[in-house]
Design a protein around this nucleic acid. Sequence first.
DNA 1: CGAAACAGGACCATTCAGGTCTTTAATTAG
DNA 2: CTAATTAAAGACCTGAATGGTCCTGTTTCG
Lengths: 154, 154
Amino acid sequence: MLKLSRLADYAIVILVKLGEQDGVVTSPALAAITGVPEPTVAKVLKVLSAHGFVLSQRGAKGGYRLARSLADMSVASVIAAVDGQIALTACVGGRECDTGLSCGLCGSWDVINTAIRSTLEGISLESMRPKEACSPVPPQINMLNATHTVREGA
Amino acid sequence: MLKLSRLADYAIVILVKLGEQDGVVTSPALAAITGVPEPTVAKVLKVLSAHGFVLSQRGAKGGYRLARSLADMSVASVIAAVDGQIALTACVGGRECDTGLSCGLCGSWDVINTAIRSTLEGISLESMRPKEACSPVPPQINMLNATHTVREGA
DNA sequence: CGAAACAGGACCATTCAGGTCTTTAATTAG
DNA sequence: CTAATTAAAGACCTGAATGGTCCTGTTTCG
């Protein structure tokens, strides 16, 4: 149902959380904070680093920190970095589909794609910050082996 | 890359094409028109029928026709029918994620979800109709085994 | 010199969407 | 009344892609 990839989801959460810390933060630390498994956090961070969202510092006492403020990062840019081009369909740029379909709708998809893209551009990570406490999640939950029961609400 | 499911894609193409025909159209006929394999067309049509987008007539001389005009069908409604609820993430409705993540972003995702949804609501199938001829697709291509090379522009 | 931590890539496994097939029921034509 | 046509429904299989893990190398600090 038009869903975001898990990695992109993580990326946004990680960036927001990273923005709340000060100083450099290691990936294991971020894993503990977010509940996302360490290797995955590391992977996401690497991508974010490559795209200039975070600055990395190698070696002992190294870690990551934001490259710029959350207000300067749009949801669209993060998704694009992690998942690639934001587009609902393969028909991008007014070209004909590379499927053999004679859909004839060609350029029409572009309307949708750009609409979605600009919608996402308008939302900054800053606006994703939690406002009020909304999580009635019991604080005792064991973050280490959080079971990750990602069950989609179909 | 936030992509639409193939079925939803087909559904839109099929509806638009169906709107261009007059009288009832059989699924094999629609398959020929769109280039989508027959069984898949039939499957999509069944879903669309169940959701009231098309009217079906069984038996000999049967087929499908639009239940209402293309202008009265939003892209959002078609996607919702085929793929289910339009939402980028599992966190819908301000509830906490059912993952063990302490993301704390809870309600924030809702902003994105509703933004996307309303964007898609604003686009009708009528506006997806091809305006000018845009397909330089060679007419000799073999539609039967169209390879469907959906290669994402990463 | 050794430990800590990022960098980069390869790799495996699971999931799920896409697609096919079979059977059943309805409607029309002859 | 019978036969042919076509939609309805659902089971099932296949394959691609995402998600996740691990390994090796390199840098930096104590």
